[in-house]
Design a protein around this nucleic acid. Structure first.
Lengths: 337, 337
DNA sequence: ATGAAAGCGCTAACAA
DNA sequence: TTGTTAGCGCTTTCAT
């Protein structure tokens, strides 16, 4: 465990000495206590300024038992949804004065989880936000101490914990119905790896198909990589029965369209494709992607808001929902012929 | 500054009591000291296990004066390059046992910088990595204490500090020469907002044009948003003289192509476009984007490696370079006619 | 190899 | 309003 010792920073004692007061007074000034004479306050502030004093937050947390650091626990931080959600959390946390550490889970195995969590828990957290976009998130959620304030983001329901989610099922239904309304007789679904439950998007797709009295075809399984749906596109190109595909996210939708194109099939003329997420690039894809917008940054802010309620003493688990919205652009149209 | 008090966690004292040893012995066991009898070690480990003891890293850092947390300082965390670089840093830091906090700069104004930095510096950092993809990074770099181990990533040269960079100029030159070799008589350049110095990509573009004895047209200024290059595309569509465009990143390239398409101009038939970064989607864009690959994750790992050298005692500032590589796909071809 | 004592920089409880 | 004293949970001497 490496580290280096650096030039000593000024302490409250140094400031106290220079200001001609005691350390607790310095402490009072910096913790915003009212009970300080204007004179003492002035002197302390001047001294602190001169020395470049900054309270040591470690010592502070240790002495007071109050800790403000929150952790964001996630398996992948680079994918669009994760990234944007984390940025939303960070923004809200920063505004509320909470430092944020990021803890990346190496995988869904119990050992990985335990190791990652041990590392972050030794840090004395005020609370944690767990991203359940991946499978590891679920496992982590269960391994976290009961009495630690925790909020889950997305994923399956977590009894007893606050949670911020999108109403994916509704959106999935809407997207599927939209495709149906265009005249398609069936809609295929391409899924990314399951998060350990029936995702809302799939559920919505199924239910829309069923309410329309249609058969529910088997889910087409992809990975998280656009390449996987590219390959799927190449084989789907040979299947004249498939006229509409609903993809679990934009990356898969774009990979699919690209694969389709490489096999000579055009979107939306030959086949319609809908994505999910509305990544910034979706609007500028060719064709512009019809997709479902989700405000990930707001989801992240929601999550922090929920955590904050617990930090402020609430013990009630709350569920906050956000509604994704269908964005109609150019990748879906009527079936050919 | 909110926070909550939770159930007391077991301390070294509790473990010591249960194990029938003193606290220092517990400390020795957990800090991997050799001078512990096998018997004591066993008892301590058993007791710790039973109590679920985890050393308090705050107290540890405070008592030892050794601190391991590193900070990543950046203005934007959501853009592709930033995200991926941060993931690379995180990966390397995690492997080396260093917790990582993320500190987002609100803007390039001195007050913003000071505020953000104060918050993160009060946390007793072992070191920091500053992302200079944005302007704020530069300012932050200068505001950081001299004696804090710091490494800069990308951006202009920083005397006295270690730095991990891409050889952008070389790559920019190569991309431009490639366009020229296709038969284009000139190449336009679309830039994102300047980071306060002449970016390597622009420099490379200029130098390639000059060596070919060509005029250097004015840089076309865009924002970070694809929409801005989309608009540029719409107006460029009316200009028959422009047959090749080099974009400072893939987002701008895709926005441009989309804008061009909306005005009826096709890529690469009517006009050639090259991007920079090779985002995962670039390969699946239509047309597949010819671009310059940069291994951001490796850049992040490089940066941490550099920081680690300083944490291990080195005071020598080192520069680590990585070579981007041209990836030829379908968005650039010979000029029309 | 181990324990007693001191101290990291701060805040809390109390007294004045 | 202010200072004194004690203590947060750990590590570090320094004895033994």
């Amino acid at each position: 465990m490496p580290s280096i010792a650096r030039e000593r920073q000024p302490s409250a004692k140094d400031v106290a000495l220079l200001a001609g007061v005691s350390t607790p007074t310095v402490s009072r000034v910096f913790s915003g206590s009212a009970n300080v004479s204007p004179r003492a306050r002035r002197q302390v502030e001047a001294a602190a300024q001169r020395l470049g004093y900054r309270p040591n937050s470690l010592a502070r947390a240790l002495a007071s038992g109050r800790v403000t650091t929150i952790a964001v626990i996630s398996q992948n931080t680079a994918r669009y949804g994760n990234t944007t959600t984390i940025a939303g959390i960070e923004e809200a946390a920063r505004a509320a004065g909470h430092p944020m550490v990021i803890s990346v889970l190496e995988g869904p195995d119990p050992q990985d989880i335990t190791r990652s969590l041990d590392a972050v828990l030794s840090q004395q957290l005020a609370g944690a936000i767990v991203l359940q976009f991946d499978r590891a998130g679920r496992a982590a959620l269960q391994a976290l101490p009961e009495d630690l304030p925790v909020v889950a983001v997305s994923g399956p329901n977590v009894p007893g914990r606050s949670q911020a989610v999108f109403e994916e099922a509704r959106a999935g239904e809407e997207a599927t119905r939209y495709l149906l309304s265009l005249g398609h007789r069936s809609v295929a679904f391409i899924a990314f790896p399951s998060v350990g439950h029936v995702g809302g998007r799939v559920a919505g797709w199924r239910s829309a198909l069923r309410s329309a009295g249609l058969n529910v075809p088997p889910v087409i399984q992809a990975t998280w990589e656009a390449r996987s749906s590219y390959e799927i596109g190449r084989s789907l190109a040979r299947d004249p029965n498939t006229t509409a595909v609903f993809c679990a996210n934009d990356m898969l939708a774009m990979g699919l369209i690209s694969g389709l194109a490489s096999a000579g099939r055009r979107v939306p003329d030959d086949i319609s494709v809908i994505g999910f997420d509305d990544e910034p690039i979706a609007e500028f894809y060719l064709p512009p992607l019809t997709t479902v917008y989700q405000d990930f940054a707001a989801l992240g802010r929601d999550a922090f808001g929920l955590l904050k309620e617990h930090l402020d003493g609430s013990t009630r688990a709350r569920l906050v929902r956000r509604t994704p919205t269908l964005v109609v652009r150019g990748s879906a149209g009527p079936p050919p012929g």
